[in-house]
Design a protein around this nucleic acid. Sequence first.
DNA 1: ACCCAGGCGGGCG
DNA 2: CGCCCGCATGGG
Length: 289
Amino acid sequence: MQRLVSTRNFAFGYTLESAQPLTFYSDYAIGGGLLTFPYQKSIVSLRYRGDNKSGSFYLERSTGKSVFGREEASYLFRLGDDMERIYESISTDAFMIAAIEKYRGLRLTRNDPWVTTLTFIISQFNNIKRIRRIVKLLIERYGTDINDSSGMPVGKGFPDMETLSRLSVKELMECGTGFRAGYIKEASRYFTENVDLYKLEGKSYSMIKDALIGARGIGDKVADIIALMGYGKLEAFPIDTWIKRTVEKVYFNGHGKTVKEIHRFADERWGELAGYAQQYLYWHGMHSL
DNA sequence: ACCCAGGCGGGCG
DNA sequence: CGCCCGCATGGG
């Protein structure tokens, strides 16, 4: 078993469970430190040995045609981020300090833009367990085939957007997508025919967000989370029901605030690292308030 | 039975 | 703009 990379300030369990794309489509056993997921044209199994302070990733198995090594692991889990510097910067108050204390090592992940787009269109007005179920059904039924070097099938990857755009709403609903079926179909077509998600890489946060919101089924929150987790824009601050609830309660004495006001508040308070602050607020707020 | 879930689109004032 | 409503579905 090949050792890929060592970690510091990395919490395997929190990172995988905290409702990021990997939560929705990978199989993980927190205790055993095992993680299996489709990666491009391969199925990859990683083993994590260590605790929330330090550890190492090992490549247990990789079957298929894509390479997954040290560089990919480091990129996926943002192991290059200087967490001490980030913690220092976002430790603005007692609630944030408590969140960091409790969930130290929770990382944002980097994800494919299309994977992030699809999973978070599905996430709306939904819960984590059901999101997992829907995503896995889509992969199972409409995912791209992944074969080993001799052509033997080893699993399924993410369904590509052309495939989904050609499905009927009925077929999409039979995967449990509910009222989101139309959104999936139309957004798939939009990103196939009108806007190339992969040409947005490297553009500014606001350009990316505007381009994403042009698609049906993507609003302010989903666009922000795609910018954050699919394009690595750390200044993005996705505002879902939990974040709204938490920010109002912790910072405004429970008084209602508009999404616009919360965006301004987060930008002034956490600026370029608002996305990291958001992930800690979300996870700590959801479990403690 | 009832309530809710990492929201969005549409209609209204 | 801000506010309100309906939306499919499965789990608690």
